[in-house]
Design a protein around this nucleic acid. Structure first.
Lengths: 146, 146
DNA sequence: TTGGTTGCAAAGTCTTTGCAGACAT
DNA sequence: ATGTCTGCAAAGACTTTGCAACCAA
C-alpha cells in the first residue's frame, strides 16, 4: 500500500517502469512483457509480474483490477477513474479527482464502515463508435488491444 | 444480455436457481456447487458454471464481477450496488437505485459515449469492525465466507 | 430423430511460486 | 559472505470446453 524499504532499482525494474510510463494505454502484464522483451530478450514473465506487484506496492504504479477483465497496470498514480469501452476493452483515463459526495451518499445506507470505492465508467470509445456508424459489424472484440 | 429463447428449466437449473435465491450472500460458483450437491450429488461443476452463465444471460440472476476478486453471483436482479468488506470479502447489498447524476457528471469529461458504470463501495463489515475493537488480529482473511 | 443438456475429464487462461544460479553490497 | 533478484519451469486458482451418453419434444 505505502512505500517500504528503498527498493533496488535494477535494470529489469527500471525498464519495466519506463515501458509502462511510456504508454498511455493500460497494458496487461503480458503486453508489458512483450514490450520489455524488445529491450531485454531474456526477461521472464514471472519477473514482470513480480516487478509490477512490487512497483504497485511501492505506490509507483497502479494496478487496475477492472470488473470482469484481466488485470491491467497504470503508470499514472494520481487518483483518477477509468472508462472502459465495452466493445474493444480499451481503457481511458478520466480527469483526476473523485466524484464529490459519492461515499457520503451511501454512509447512511449501510452498516459497513465506508472507506473507499471503485468506480468505472462504461461506454463506447470513439474508434468503436466510428466503426459502428460505418456499418462494420465488429461484434464484441476481445479486450486485448495495446 | 436480454432474455432469449425459452429455456428448458431442467432439474439442475431449477435447483441452482433455488439455491442461489435462498441465500442472501453472494456466493462463488463453487459455493453454489457445494450447496447444490447436497441435493444433487452427481451434478458437475461444469454444469454449475454453464447454468450460472445461462441464467445471467437470461437476466434471471446477476454476475458480480468485483474488481480483483473472483466472480460471484447474485439472485437479486433489481439494480443495486454492493459494498465489499476489505477484510473478509463479504459482499452486502445496498438499497436499490443508482447514484443520481453520476453518469451525467462524467459526460463532458470523456470522448467516449457513456452507457453505464460499475460502482462498488469498500469498507469494513460489522463483524470485522467488532473483531478489531476486540483486538483480534485477523489480518486479511481470504475472501471466502459463505 | 433431433437438438439441447449433462457429467466427466481435459484444456485454457492468467498469475504465483520454488529453486538454483547470478548479482550487488 | 550475505541477502536480494532473476530466469525457468512447474504449480495454482479459477473457468471453459470437447465429447459421448442422455433426455425431452
Amino acid at each position: 500500500m505505502s512505500a517500504q524499504s528503498p527498493l533496488h532499482m535494477t535494470e529489469q525494474r527500471r525498464v519495466i517502469l519506463e515501458e509502462l510510463r511510456k504508454v498511455r494505454s493500460h497494458p496487461t502484464a503480458d503486453k508489458i512483457y512483450t514490450r520489455v522483451r524488445r529491450r531485454m530478450p531474456r526477461i521472464s514473465l514471472g519477473t514482470v509480474y513480480r516487478t509490477l506487484d512490487l512497483l504497485a506496492a511501492q505506490g509507483m504504479i497502479r494496478k487496475i483490477e477492472s470488473a470482469g477483465t484481466r488485470r491491467r497496470f497504470d503508470g499514472t498514480v494520481e487518483p483518477h477513474y477509468h472508462i472502459r469501452c465495452l466493445e474493444c476493452g480499451r481503457i481511458a483515463d478520466l480527469p483526476p479527482g473523485e466524484m464529490p459526495g459519492l461515499e457520503a451518499h451511501f454512509r447512511n445506507q449501510t452498516d459497513y464502515d465506508v472507506v473507499g470505492h471503485t468506480l468505472e465508467l462504461l461506454g463506447t470509445c470513439p474508434a468503436c463508435r466510428k466503426d459502428r456508424t460505418e456499418g462494420k459489424d465488429v461484434g464484441v472484440r476481445p479486450a486485448s488491444e495495446q
